[in-house]
Simulated scan of single mutants.
Amino acid sequence: MTSRDQNLVSTEWLEDHLDAPDVIILDASWYLPTEERDAQAEYRQEHIPGAVFFDIDAHSDRSSDLPHMLPNTVAFSSAMRKLGVGDGQKIVIYDGAGLFSAARVWWTFKTMGASDVVVLDGGLPKWKAEGRALDSGTEKKMERHFTARLDHGRVRDLGEMKRNVETTREQVIDARPAARFKGEAAEPRPNTRSGHMPGSINIPFNLLLDDQRCFKSNADIKAVFDGAGVDLSRPITASCGSGVTAAVLALGLELIGIDSYGLYDGSWSEWGQDNLDTPVVTG
């Protein structure tokens, strides 16, 4: 099985496995506040049959002022048990944008030690475009035992990122749009500076996706990283605005067989804060 098969499934595959007892489907839709969309209400209106709703903000570190930071393992295990996610299941994640927030939840589960977690390529838009079945309302699953073990190697914090600016041991790839990366466009969060970390490389996450919001071929994904000047033989850390689209880059790396990477959980919502002395570059 290839790295792509281990992390991505097609709509055809999922339709064939809707009733499989060892498969749990999660609707992980989340939208930027500026989009004014209610992900949970949209889930109740229509979702893939059997899917339960995974709330990115509810299943996060509620003590942090930063958006949807990783929770601790005890809280996450408890929440997943109540959701019906258990050890030994294949966890299939999708979102309503096609391929956006599902990658963040994929990374969360991988970081929490889940061994079999995949993203639905093209998500709900592709599923609907193909005329596949939909349900409404909410789904309730039986509680199952879920064991979370944090993989520290997949996460970077502020201290590590500050040190990396000095050492440049890891390449930092930033998934935000080019205008925000360059400091030409304002950040959507208040009290946040514009620009990027010194030495970081801009790879807007949508460059890895095709017009249907599916991942491009492995060759094309590799060409995007190569074209941006990323050395795939060296360690990499992904960042973005709040740790969501950075996970699209992380998933793209996994698809092409690169597993030596981390994700900066606080991302620009932390680094770019007005009250921090973190260096910011524009242009």
Rank of each mutant, 00 (worst) to 15 (best):
P190N: 10
D27I: 02
K182S: 15
A41Y: 08
G122Q: 10
S194H: 04
T278M: 10
P198F: 10
T237P: 04
A247P: 03
N206I: 08
G113S: 10
K182E: 12
T111E: 07
M69F: 00
V248H: 01
K126R: 15
S194A: 15
P235F: 01
A102K: 02
I173W: 06
L232D: 11
S60I: 09
T111S: 14
Q89Y: 06
Q40K: 11
E270H: 13
H17E: 01
E15I: 09
V244T: 09
T168M: 05
Y43W: 00
T73R: 08
S64F: 00
W268A: 00
G266Y: 07
D22Q: 12
S200K: 03
S10D: 09
E35H: 14
A250R: 11
R156L: 11
A103R: 00
M161F: 01
R154N: 05
P204T: 10
R180L: 08
F53M: 08
P235Y: 01
M80S: 02
S200M: 02
S239N: 03
G50Q: 05
L124D: 01
V280M: 01
D38T: 05
Y264H: 05
F225A: 09
R154M: 12
L70T: 06
D277L: 09
R176V: 11
G98K: 05
D116P: 04
H59W: 14
T111C: 14
N191I: 02
G86K: 05
N206H: 10
L209I: 07
T245D: 15
L255T: 15
V119H: 01
L249Q: 11
I93K: 05
R193W: 04
S217L: 03
R81G: 09
D151K: 15
D27F: 00
P204E: 05
S10A: 09
P188M: 08
V9C: 14
G227L: 13
S101H: 02
G262E: 10
P33K: 02
F76E: 06
S78E: 13
G113Y: 10
E35C: 02
M1Q: 13
A179M: 09
L83E: 11
G195Y: 12
S115G: 07
V230W: 08
A228Y: 06
